[in-house]
Design a protein around this nucleic acid. Structure first.
Length: 553
RNA sequence: UGCCCGAUAGUAUAAAGGUAGUACAACGGUUUUUGGUACCGUUUGUCUAGGUUCGAAUCCUGGUCGGGCAACCA
């Protein structure tokens, strides 16, 4: 059944490592910094790391990379955990880089003792100046030659809180002339008198990313430490620390991060959208965050499928949003029940249907499901709401819907013929008059009449109302990041359209937050968390493909 | 004017020296009580110049283009 997917370069490395017996057990980790909400780009990394150990055995740790107390919060830890679980993955161990602060401190002492680290009292500017540039080598700091004893003492004082922020830092002693800027005596510990979300005020010195990440991987015996391309140049340092400290040799591999058209992906920019009130929050349905996609109605299955399809490689990429939309349509088409809702209503009156008469019709819930998803009852009467766009006073060519003299099928009901219509003073059509064909009832049609168009409807007497929110891309250009000027100059002004009063069939009154629906001929919808029993609110996840709309252009 | 990474249809991603394939997108058709779905078909590609080889997307050299690197961020 399962078709073969070719291996990506990381799978090739792993298969080879396993084959030659380099590792017994594959161990990966997902290491977010708890300073924001996870987005679809993180989903790619999550699916990769957890997917690898699911495929090859072994396990994946969740490690919060919390080495910067001023940006990190427990709120983010909680949301990130929720998002990973929702995506359908289970971590082996829940860990925090801050769990290793004692060990990391000892590692720093070891380095000092080996003469490979020193305390520098230069200011940030002085240190930057001596660092050189990418094209010019750096030069030694005046503090570079301090004795081991002095360094040990000063570092201990740093830990003890004897210095204010910024007075001094601990640096690795490597090579100020290295072509790799990161090897020019990188800072490994800085002083920050700040409260940490887990360790409180125990520490006033915190390790830098480069002095924490590889060692944490090593402590956990991570075999394959997978990260994004911007860390390529960090690998040399990563290996250097592991070698000098003589600890478990985790290996770092890098892949290209995800970029998606019509959105931005950096936490910084997403935070700006939230703070500027451009979106309602991290989980605004237009956001590319996991929580936004979830609220929008995306399913974990569809996001996992998307991550599978985009592949893993090392070249920069910009994935078309249409692929994500395809994945969610594909899943929702198979799993969601069909219902009828009229978003832009106009009244249709069946003149030969007895006034006051009602019928209960049966509709199948999902033609794609094996059991058709069961059936539901749909009330029918002489007065219906239909979609305004399903009537044309002067039909275009190839028009299959209602027009004077034209016939269509009402989904799950009868064929009707349009006899007349009314307009108001402004020329807007207000009512459409039809006659129905009694012997054309769905399921027992003996009329021999075949019509090309089928439209959805809701009985006016039985309709419930709901608010419907329809979303469009957040930005009007494919790559807001690469345009001139500020990315916010390219916002799509019409990224949300709110329909205050749509008519929905009574069945939908019992909609729950876990269900997704296909509004027939319209799209996929789910209940929004803003919903109340008095006021239902639906979000459009994605519209259906619309060949007619395309043909009109 | 340094170092590092990369370059295959519109977008992604395969082909480990031997038929350039797949998906999405686009376009056309068949089926259809959703102008949906399903199915069928069409268009479009190896950055460039050399070299190695019987044979190069793949190996080598030069060039071009794109990205990263000079936070007490991760």
């Amino acid at each position: 059944m399962s078709e073969e997917r070719s291996l990506n370069f990381i799978e090739e490395i792993i298969e080879n490592d396993l084959k030659v017996g380099k590792y017994e057990t594959l161990v990966t980790r997902f290491p977010p910094e708890p300073n924001g909400y996870l987005h679809i780009g993180h989903a790619k990394a999550i699916c990769l790391n957890f997917g690898l150990t699911k495929k090859y055995g072994g396990y994946t740790n969740l490690r919060f990379d919390d080495t910067n107390p001023v940006t990190e919060k427990t709120e983010y830890v909680d949301s990130q955990q929720q998002d990973i679980k929702w995506l359908g993955f289970e971590w082996k161990n829940e860990l925090y880089t801050s769990d290793y602060f004692d060990t990391l401190y000892d590692f720093a002492v070891t380095l000092i003792e080996k003469g490979l680290a020193y305390v520098d009292h230069g200011t940030a500017d002085e240190i930057a100046a001596l660092k050189g540039t990418p094209t010019e080598p750096g030069s030694a700091s005046p503090y570079r030659s301090r004795s081991i004893t002095e360094n040990l003492e000063l570092f201990s004082k740093m830990k003890a809180g004897d210095f204010e922020d910024g007075v001094c830092i601990l640096r690795a002693k490597i090579d100020m002339t290295s072509p790799n800027m990161l090897m020019r005596d990188p800072i490994i510990y800085r002083i920050k008198h700040a409260e940490h979300h887990r360790t409180g005020n125990k520490w006033c010195i915190y390790p830098m990313y480069d002095f924490a990440h590889g060692q944490s991987d090593s402590i956990e015996e991570i075999t394959h430490s997978i990260c994004t391309l911007e860390y390529v140049s960090h690998r040399e340092l990563y290996d250097w620390f592991i070698e000098k400290l003589e600890i478990f040799p985790s290996k770092q591999y890098e892949f290209a991060r995800l970029n998606l058209t019509y959105t931005v992906m950096s936490k910084r920019k997403l935070l700006q959208l939230v703070n500027d009130g451009i979106v309602s929050g991290w989980n605004d349905p237009r956001m590319p965050t996991i929580s936004g996609l979830r609220r929008r109605g995306y399913t974990p299955e569809s996001i996992r499928e998307f991550c599978e399809r985009i592949g893993i490689a090392k070249r920069e990429n910009l994935i078309e949003l249409s692929l994500l939309e395809f994945c969610v349509r594909e899943h929702l088409n198979k799993t969601s029940n069909r219902v009828m809702a009229v978003l832009d209503p106009i009244k249709l009156i069946i003149t030969n249907y007895p006034e006051g008469k009602e019928e209960t019709l049966i509709g199948e819930n999902n033609p794609e499901a094996e059991d058709k998803g069961g059936t539901r009852e749909i009330p029918f009467s002489s007065e219906l709401w239909i979609e305004r766009e399903d009537f044309m006073e002067e039909p275009a060519k190839k028009w299959f819907r209602l027009a004077p003299g034209a016939m269509v099928r009402l989904k799950n009901a009868y064929i009707v013929k349009c006899d007349d219509f009314r307009k108001d003073a402004d020329g807007n059509v207000t009512e459409i008059y039809c006659t129905y064909i009694p012997e054309s009832k769905s399921g027992e049609d003996t009329s021999e009449i075949h019509v090309k168009g089928t439209i959805h409807w809701v009985s006016t007497a039985h309709a419930k109302t709901a608010e419907v929110r329809i979303y469009d891309r957040l930005f009007s250009v494919e790559s807001p990041d690469s345009e001139d000027g500020d990315f916010k100059d390219y916002l799509n002004k019409d990224s949300v359209k709110v329909i205050k009063q749509a008519y929905i069939e009574p069945f939908l009154a019992n909609a729950d937050l876990d269900s997704r629906y296909q509004f027939i001929r319209k799209g996929y919808y789910c209940l929004d968390t803003d919903s109340t029993p008095e006021q239902l609110v639906f979000n459009q996840t994605v519209g259906l493909k619309d060949a007619w709309a395309k043909a009109k252009k």
